[in-house]
Design a protein around this nucleic acid. Structure first.
Lengths: 155, 155
DNA sequence: TAAAAAGGTAAACCAGGTTGTCTATCGATG
DNA sequence: CATCGATAGACAACCTGGTTTACCTTTTTA
């Protein structure tokens, strides 16, 4: 990092700023539509729950965080009405985390809004440029799993 | 977000994964070179200090966080030997935060490593594709300031 | 020169991560 | 069929790094 922010330093900043601007736009609109409490982390976690539900331990594994941390996040989702815990019929130890209707609605609306953002990028830059960006990132990135250990990772 | 991760949902994920893979690579190497304690947040904060030094309040403003939070981060940088607080000769209220030699070294080495990563991307994808990615992101992103309120923002 | 603005610090709180320990249950194996 | 290792979940203690509120000191300004 020189004082003049050379090229090399700019690339990661731009990638993060791109990510952030999309997520900010998404959540500004979600807040307007009745989800003011929803945070980016909630969408990721809810996605990790999956349509069939999952145990907190499994969610932790999918997110790359401890089962305890996953449990706390599920507590939060539960408090906000996006997920619920039900007894696991096949394992008396476990409690299955499932999406509520509100949780499913949040994900569905998020998907629509993400499509809108991408369409705007395509309109602005050209569809081919957006496709190229995605293709290039796919080539350079190990795998676009949603690791959720961001808090601990960043700081 | 549909279950099948349509295009719209993939773009932000790819942007974040790209950012993250670069930062992970950087810090893996920094750790090998004697900076195992350095976290991504430290680099951002140290950058915000600037070559002339800055007050904690000013750092907070640059990073988009409260002066108290900035103060805590400076505490951390100080403990790790990357920054020091000196009396501000022009303001008896303030204490100027300045980079130590070790802090400057961390930033310089980071800059070199960022250049290396970008060169690898250019070799893999083609220099024009990397330039195009940067150009397109620059066009879509408000401004690539390093907001550091990520912890609070994400969760 | 008094009031407002700004720097720094401290305390209380929250979110979300960690590790470690404990109990209950599951599943495989002798 | 009993036992034992692995696993789910809960709980506690702790760390980092945000927040807000409050207060003191110093500087700026009206």
């Amino acid at each position: 990092m020189t004082e003049t922010d050379g090229y090399g330093f700019e690339l990661p900043l731009l990638l993060f700023a791109g990510f952030r601007s999309i997520i900010d736009e998404l959540h500004a609109e979600l807040a307007r539509e009745g989800h003011p409490q929803a945070r980016p982390a909630h969408g990721f976690a809810l996605q990790a729950v999956g349509p069939q539900g999952a145990t907190a331990s499994e969610i932790g594994r999918r997110l790359g965080i401890s089962k305890q941390a996953a449990g706390k996040t599920v507590d939060r989702l539960e408090a906000l009405g996006y997920a619920a815990r039900v007894p696991d019929p096949r394992d008396a130890r476990g409690r299955l985390v499932v999406r509520t209707a509100r949780g499913t609605e949040l994900l569905a609306r998020s998907a629509e809004l993400f499509e809108q953002v991408r369409a705007r990028w395509a309109a602005e830059l050209g569809a081919d440029r957006v496709r190229a960006m995605e293709q290039d990132l796919r080539a350079m990135v190990p795998s676009p799993l949603f690791r959720l250990d961001v808090s601990g990772w960043l700081g």
